[in-house]
Design a binder for these strands. Structure first.
Lengths: 222, 222, 222, 222
DNA sequence: CATGAATGAGAGTTCATTCAT
DNA sequence: CATGAATGAACTCTCATTCAT
């Protein structure tokens, strides 16, 4: 019946709302935004449908609320994980660990953000894009800091840094799915830990960034 | 009204079918699979709804046909772009150029494959996963070849190579969106060309792979 | 609008369900299973279409529910009418009276059972065939009992008894339509009562059975 | 493909029309009036759909034409079978033989008349009712003649004779289905011949009528 | 006349949403 | 606030029917 253990009545509004959001995350992740029905969400939440409307007003607003909560939770998890005064590489490293740990612990929330919210058009894609932009910005800052630390000769173009950040974030997203077993094609061995996933990406990315900062570039000429 | 210019009647079946697929790609990309209505698809195609059903049978089959067509087109574009006898780095480079050129020229098709098909569950996710797996395998082979060419000391673990391939493919996917202006947060300056996008990723990735192959690894202690 | 007088809202489910079944019986009898639309049934019932689906799930299930209700009512009417301890002729007589009384009081229900359900193939024909078989069996038993009471010389062949029972049931069905004015060609005078119809058939059938049991047979040579 | 053997072109209109009617009989019997599609009928007939419309104008008219042809064929078969100058019992006997022979040889036609046409409401039920009325009238005449031949004391009431005729016709219809294996509950042994079926009914009916004419009546008091 | 393209009208079904009790 | 009754609007899909070639 309910998603939690007890079917207790008369709970404070804030608690009930969280139950509903939990149920919504579960259901949206399982069925997708359109296929998820308010009936099912209410049933999973263990409350009556009118109560869902009383608190969350509409399916759209409910989905928005879900996105906001999960977005904030993910952003907060990353923010809490980074060590703000450490050197750039350590900041990136701890941020990645936080990211992979959170997506592994909240696969449904991650699925809603990454797979559902971005694909349902205007009203929702924007909301999740904001959080993504925040992360991209953080990564961009790290890359910039790394460049300075490396004392690299030339200031890297904003355009290229933007591309690098998007590449890194995309790689991280893809690896989060991969580590959750949703990447298509199972991972050999047991599911990788957040630390291992972070290490895989960090090794790859930091090395690449390092050489870039040294001015080494690949050229088609071979 | 119609997606093309002319509202001409009585066209041969093959032509009409392509028009319908074009309309479907557009509409699925705009609205998402569930939110796209057969009514809208028919209207965009400039035909009546029954004709869509006469030729494509059902919404599911229509979506499948779209996925197959766009999948094949993308895979073919990449396949045609790579120079099969070149060294690994050049193969990867030319493949990436082909990939970004195609996704830039067919942004709706790419959106359907990347955002819609993968998130609609069993029947469709499988179809697009096959193509993604093909690409991941190609990338995996490139990484392996690079390792050999580099004469790297130790054979890289299958698990790590899988992670690297997924990271690289995820980075490419993310950059495709970024180059199409769909990454969230506009690109500074004008939209990057396929070649530029490919170079950004190639520089980043090849350098990273190179160092990895040399056995250099990032460690948190550093 | 509605089939009843009052357009009252908010009725308990059981009541509304019966109203819907009433409307369905009427509409199926008038139009036939396929030609009857759920829209019309809902309108006749004085409710919206979704409510019909909420309670009865689908057109097929609605039709099944109608068949079950009307079948059970008819079978029950016959069962209640027969005097179980009376001699065979009286049992048949009272059964027939019950049958004709019920079909006369529920002409639409009878039409649905006799004309619609039997002609709509597998799922439905089976349901009504069960009730018809029950009645045929009852008649068969009566014929057997009559034969024994008559102490007839030879045991009648199962094959012939089956034929006789089918003939008798067919005659009863035809007379039910006739008495309801649906036999084609109006009945002279006013519509016959159940008792009169039963008497017509009883006179005809019992006499015929009696002679058969006496071993008298018609032969073409005569 | 076609229902006949050869797919020959350029046949005279009359022949083509018969092929279409054959296909329609088959399809209407199999699927029912509403469920039968003009597409299927055209395909079974081995002609193009527009030709069906050119000759038969509409589904309604096609069904009407089918009813008329099958009605006429059945009526004609019965008419041809009776020996007009023979005594009443022989006329009835030969008529029944003709009826059961025809329904056994043309089960689809019989199914369309008996199961489909009568259940599709106004326009069609009337057409088949006409033929039924004709047969009922013939039977009525036989019963009247039998009464006279028997020199029975009292003139039987028109009302009762009508009932008897309807009973007899209903019995015959039921037995036709029974003999075709469509009565529900298989016939013991192999399928009865037309002659056997006719004998079963004739024995039953003639004996009953005979006693009735003798003035013997069943009374509940007995 | 065969072929194949094309459609208006409607059927069954579902769902977000509301309101009386 | 829980319950259960109720619906407007939409969606997928089908079919009889027509017309140009």
């Amino acid at each position: 019946m309910g998603v939690g253990a007890v079917k207790s009545k008369r709970m404070p509004r804030a608690v009930r709302e969280q139950q509903m959001l939990d149920a919504a995350v579960l259901t949206f992740a399982r069925r997708g935004y359109r296929a998820a029905s308010m009936d099912e969400i209410a049933e999973v939440a263990g409350v009556s449908k009118p109560l869902v409307y009383l608190y969350l007003n509409s399916k759209e607003e409910l989905f928005s609320a879900v996105i906001r909560r999960e977005s904030a939770a993910l952003a907060e998890a990353v923010r809490a994980a980074v060590e703000p005064d450490a050197p750039a590489d350590r900041q990136l490293w701890s941020g990645l660990k936080g990211f992979f740990a959170h997506t592994a612990e909240h696969p449904d929330g991650w699925a809603v953000l990454h797979q559902q919210a971005r694909t349902q058009g205007e009203p929702f894609a924007v909301e999740v894009a904001a959080m993504r932009a925040e992360i991209v910005e953080f990564v961009t800052a790290m890359i910039g800091a790394a460049a300075q630390e490396a004392g690299c000769g030339r200031e890297p173009a904003a355009r290229e840094v933007s591309g690098l950040a998007h590449a890194l974030v995309g790689a991280a997203e893809s690896l989060a799915d991969w580590a959750n077993g949703r990447g298509g094609g199972a991972v050999p061995g047991e599911r990788p830990s957040a630390k291992e996933t972070a290490a895989t990406l960090m090794n790859f990315a930091w090395a690449g960034l390092g050489r870039l900062m040294d001015g080494e570039r690949w050229s088609p000429g071979g």
